[in-house]
């Protein structure tokens, strides 16, 4: 995998590349996510193995990484959205494999993916999960409290 490809993506949609041992992370604006993914699929079909979509709580923002895999390298496209207004455009229509991964991020971190049909209703969490509690992987979520609310004690 020549490194030029990631630079191509960066040149097309902007953003910064950071080297991270065996993966290179491209950090981009939330609005550019679809463009980047589309570019990847159209121009670099080799990268079209989506390993997963990761979400994590960064404090004020929520980071979302799309991990693509080819050869000895991961190509990760990272973006962050603010916690209060966590909305992203889904790429599930151009990347069918991302449907479940995005739904997972939605339920566990509360990031809305516009256009992903799987996220319209609660999908990941158990039925008994209290709607007023924060999504479980956000830092403010307290497992003890949630368990009490779910009457598991």
């Amino acid at each position: 995998m020549e490194e030029g490809n990631l630079d191509d993506v960066a040149a097309r949609v902007g953003g910064q590349i950071s080297q991270n041992r065996n993966s290179r992370v491209l950090t981009i604006e939330p609005g550019k996510l679809r463009d980047a993914c589309k570019f990847l699929i159209d121009e670099m079909p080799d990268f079209y193995h989506l390993s997963t979509v990761t979400g994590f709580d960064e404090g004020k923002t929520i980071g979302v990484i799309y991990h693509f895999w080819k050869g000895k390298e991961f190509l990760s496209i990272k973006t962050s959205v603010p916690k209060e207004n966590a909305i992203l455009n889904s790429v599930s229509d151009i990347l069918p494999a991302s449907i479940l991964y995005e739904a997972e991020v939605k339920d566990l971190l509360g990031v809305e993916f516009k256009g992903n049909r799987m996220t319209l209703q609660r999908l990941i969490l158990p039925d008994a999960y209290p709607p007023e509690a924060p999504p479980p992987l956000r830092k403010e979520a307290d497992p003890e409290k949630i368990r009490k609310m779910m009457e598991l004690e």
Partner: peptide, 20 residues
Amino acid sequence: KGENAFHVEAPRGELFYYIR
């Protein structure tokens, strides 16, 4: 401090871990 993504070939296929 750091982050890393790793995957192995489990019996069922690619098993992916990402740690921060």
